Computed example of a mutant assay.
Amino acid sequence: MKPWIKKTLMGLFGASIAVGGLTACSSSHHHRGPMSAEKMSEVRGKVVERVSSKLNLNDAQKQKLNALADKMEAQRTAFMGKATDPRAEMQAIVSGDKFDRARAQTLLEEKTRAVRTNSPEVINALADFYDSLNSEQQQKVRDLMQRRKGWTGRV
């Protein structure tokens, strides 16, 4: 087999793996697609309650945690954009006989813009929450983050 054919086939194989990985990761909840607003609210409530419980937060700290959750939810919504099916976006990029580079670049720019625009608010909300914790709570956050699953994962 000629070297350029091997390289082409390997490139296509690698691209298909990359697209498959991106498609699989693009859905928020296994293969069922993005979470509905109701499911997102339910998960958010559980996470906020769990963090509040683990850190023994007072009411002011819970308010800051909820503000952080609001900002993160707004970031997620902006990142997801108007598309309801990220998998369909990726499929559309590879639907033709050639990879739609312009559409892929536009998609990347939209996602990057959403992250860049909303990140300062998320960082400020996270900083406000973290700074409201006492030194014992801050140490607990650092300890929990050292674990493999992060501070919201099961311990």
Score class of each variant (00 low, 15 high):
residue 106 T to Q: 14
residue 117 T to D: 07
residue 124 N to H: 14
residue 137 Q to L: 09
residue 122 V to G: 06
residue 110 E to M: 09
residue 139 Q to P: 01
residue 127 A to G: 05
residue 139 Q to Y: 03
residue 111 K to A: 02
residue 98 K to C: 01
residue 128 D to N: 04
residue 128 D to L: 00
residue 130 Y to P: 04
residue 99 F to K: 00
residue 115 V to G: 08
residue 96 G to M: 01
residue 92 A to T: 11
residue 94 V to W: 03
residue 121 E to G: 11
residue 107 L to G: 07
residue 106 T to G: 04
residue 107 L to K: 09
residue 117 T to L: 03
residue 120 P to Y: 02
residue 120 P to M: 05
residue 116 R to G: 09
residue 124 N to L: 15
residue 117 T to F: 04
residue 96 G to C: 08
residue 94 V to R: 05
residue 126 L to S: 14
residue 104 A to H: 00
residue 95 S to M: 07
residue 116 R to C: 05
residue 127 A to Q: 14
residue 92 A to P: 04
residue 91 Q to H: 11
residue 116 R to T: 15
residue 101 R to E: 06
residue 95 S to G: 13
residue 95 S to T: 05
residue 103 R to G: 06
residue 111 K to R: 13
residue 127 A to N: 14
residue 107 L to Q: 04
residue 124 N to C: 02
residue 110 E to F: 10
residue 132 S to A: 11
residue 136 E to H: 09
residue 139 Q to M: 06
residue 103 R to Q: 12
residue 93 I to Y: 00
residue 137 Q to W: 06
residue 132 S to G: 10
residue 108 L to W: 10
residue 102 A to L: 12
residue 128 D to R: 01
residue 134 N to P: 08
residue 97 D to I: 13
residue 139 Q to K: 09
residue 91 Q to I: 12
residue 114 A to Q: 00
residue 123 I to T: 15
residue 125 A to W: 08
residue 112 T to I: 11
residue 109 E to Y: 10
residue 128 D to V: 00
residue 136 E to M: 11
residue 126 L to T: 14
residue 104 A to M: 13
residue 107 L to T: 11
residue 134 N to E: 11
residue 97 D to F: 12
residue 93 I to M: 04
residue 95 S to E: 07
residue 140 K to R: 13
residue 107 L to S: 09
residue 106 T to N: 15
residue 139 Q to T: 06
residue 138 Q to V: 07
residue 99 F to D: 01
residue 94 V to I: 13
residue 130 Y to F: 14
residue 112 T to G: 11
residue 131 D to L: 15
residue 140 K to C: 01
residue 101 R to T: 15
residue 128 D to A: 08
residue 129 F to P: 00
residue 97 D to G: 07
residue 117 T to G: 06
residue 94 V to T: 12
residue 127 A to I: 12
residue 109 E to A: 13
residue 135 S to I: 10
residue 96 G to F: 03
residue 105 Q to P: 00
residue 96 G to R: 05
residue 94 V to M: 09
residue 117 T to H: 02
residue 138 Q to T: 08
residue 125 A to R: 03
residue 102 A to T: 11
residue 101 R to A: 15
residue 115 V to A: 13
residue 98 K to Y: 12
residue 97 D to P: 04
residue 137 Q to N: 05
residue 115 V to Y: 12
residue 109 E to I: 05
residue 95 S to P: 01
residue 104 A to Q: 07
residue 105 Q to T: 14
residue 121 E to T: 07
residue 138 Q to M: 06
residue 106 T to C: 03
residue 100 D to S: 02
residue 126 L to H: 10
residue 106 T to F: 05
residue 91 Q to A: 14
residue 91 Q to V: 14
residue 110 E to R: 14
residue 119 S to C: 11
residue 118 N to W: 05
residue 115 V to I: 14
residue 123 I to Y: 09
residue 98 K to L: 11
residue 98 K to V: 07
residue 126 L to G: 15
residue 117 T to A: 09
residue 113 R to W: 08
